[in-house]
C-alpha cells in the first residue's frame, strides 16, 4: 500500500498486534516513547510479547505500564537498570520476565540490518566480553569482530513529531532516537504524531522517515511528563 492509513484512535492503530509478536518500541527513556500507542496496546491486551527497546520502562508509565500489565514475556534492551525501573527490576528478580542485554549500538545496527536486508554483520563491539560469548568471531585486517544477526519486528510502535498524509515523518530533537531505524525493521510500523499535515506540506528535503516505511499513523495530544534530573 503506497499510502499510510490514518486512524482516528490509537486503539485502532495498534489492533494489528497479535499474541507472541516481537514489538519494537521507540524511545530513549521517556523521550520519543509512544505513550498513547502503548496505553492502547495495554487495552488491546495482546500478550506473550517480546519487546525490543532501549530501556525496560521508567516509573509507572509507557513501557513500564505494559510490563506491569503482564503482557511481556521477554525484553531485549541495552539498559534495563535505571533509578526508576522498579517495575522491570521486580519482574526480573521474581523470574517473571526474560532479559537479553544488547549493546546499544548493536541494538540499533541489528534493526538497521533487518530493515536493509542484511543477513548478518561483523561488529567490533563487545569482542572479548561476556556479551560475545558463544558468538562467531572473525579477524579482518587484524581486528576482531563478532557476528551479529538482525532483529526484525512484527510491529514497530514509534513516536514522531509530524506526519503528512502519505506517512512521511519528521521528528523533534533527541526524541528521534530509535524511531527511524525501527520504522524500517518491522512488518507493520505504527506511528503516533502530534500533527498530521497534507502531503506536500513537509519539505521533501527534510523528511527523515520516508513514507514507504510507515503503515499506520494516529494523531495524539502532546503529553506532559516530568523529566528525571530536571532542575
Amino acid at each position: 500500500m503506497s499510502k499510510a492509513q490514518i486512524f482516528a484512535s490509537p486503539d485502532e492503530a495498534v489492533s494489528v498486534v497479535k499474541d507472541g509478536d516481537i514489538v519494537l518500541v521507540g524511545g530513549f527513556g521517556l523521550a520519543g516513547m509512544p505513550f498513547d500507542l502503548i496505553d492502547a496496546l495495554i487495552r488491546h491486551g495482546a500478550g506473550d510479547l517480546t519487546i525490543v527497546s532501549n530501556n525496560a520502562g521508567n516509573g509507572d508509565v509507557g513501557l513500564a505500564a505494559l510490563l506491569k500489565a503482564g503482557q511481556v514475556r521477554k525484553v531485549l534492551c541495552s539498559f534495563p537498570r535505571q533509578v526508576d525501573s522498579y517495575v522491570f527490576d521486580d519482574l526480573y528478580r521474581r523470574g517473571e520476565i526474560e532479559l537479553e542485554v544488547v549493546p546499544q549500538g548493536n541494538l540499533a545496527e541489528r534493526m538497521r540490518a533487518a530493515g536493509a536486508g542484511i543477513g548478518a554483520f561483523y561488529c567490533p563491539t563487545g569482542v572479548g566480553t561476556p556479551l560475545a560469548e558463544g558468538k562467531e568471531t572473525r579477524t579482518i585486517d587484524g581486528r576482531d569482530y563478532v557476528l551479529e544477526y538482525p532483529i526484525k519486528g512484527d510491529v514497530a510502535l514509534i513516536s514522531a513529531h509530524i506526519a503528512d498524509t502519505m506517512g512521511n515523518l519528521v521528528y523533534r530533537k533527541t526524541a528521534r532516537n530509535f524511531g527511524p531505524v525501527m520504522a524500517t525493521a518491522a512488518t507493520t510500523t505504527v506511528v503516533q504524531v502530534s500533527s498530521i499535515v497534507d502531503a506536500g506540506q513537509i519539505d521533501p528535503e527534510v523528511v527523515v522517515t520516508p513514507s514507504i516505511y510507515v503503515d499506520r499513523v494516529v494523531q495524539v495530544e502532546p503529553r506532559h511528563y516530568t523529566v528525571q534530573g530536571a532542575r
Partner: peptide, 16 residues
C-alpha cells in the same frame, strides 16, 4: 549476585 546487567552504549564507545 542480584545485579541486573545494563550496558547501554559503553561497549560501543569503548571500541569506537
Amino acid at each position: 549476585p542480584g545485579s541486573i546487567p545494563a550496558v547501554g552504549g559503553a561497549m560501543d564507545l569503548a571500541i569506537g
